[in-house]
């Protein structure tokens, strides 16, 4: 894994003005994936948009961690269903 693509969690906390506990709780619940290199914990830059989303839901809508987990599960189902919907629409074209 390229170190350039990794952002230290401390930096994330500073820049996004979030508590360390929040990032830690997200990691513990599997909502955010981190990697540890030489005792420094990082988040991959591809995960930042996901982190931003969770941060918005938590800080702007007051959704707690349990709520975030439930939302993540439901959103992944929504995404799956949306993909299925597109695939079915494409299949339906065969019969039009």
């Amino acid at each position: 894994m390229n170190l350039e693509d990794l952002i230290p969690t401390d930096e994330i906390c500073t820049r996004y003005k979030v508590e360390r506990n929040f990032v830690h709780a997200l990691t513990e619940s599997g909502l955010l994936h981190t990697v540890t290199v030489q005792k420094i914990t990082y988040v991959h830059c591809d995960e930042i948009s996901e982190f931003e989303k969770l941060r918005r839901l938590h800080y702007e809508l007051d959704i707690n961690l349990e709520g975030l987990e439930a939302i993540q599960n439901l959103l992944s189902q929504v995404k799956k269903l949306q993909n299925q919907n597109v695939a079915l629409k494409n299949k339906l074209n065969l019969y039009e």
Binding site: I12, R15, K17, E52, R56, Y59, E60
Partner: peptide, 14 residues
């Protein structure tokens, strides 16, 4: 602009 609000900002807008 993405992320305007209470926090600092990092990654650009998608």
């Amino acid at each position: 602009s993405q992320g305007a609000g209470r926090g600092g900002h990092f990654k650009g807008q998608d």
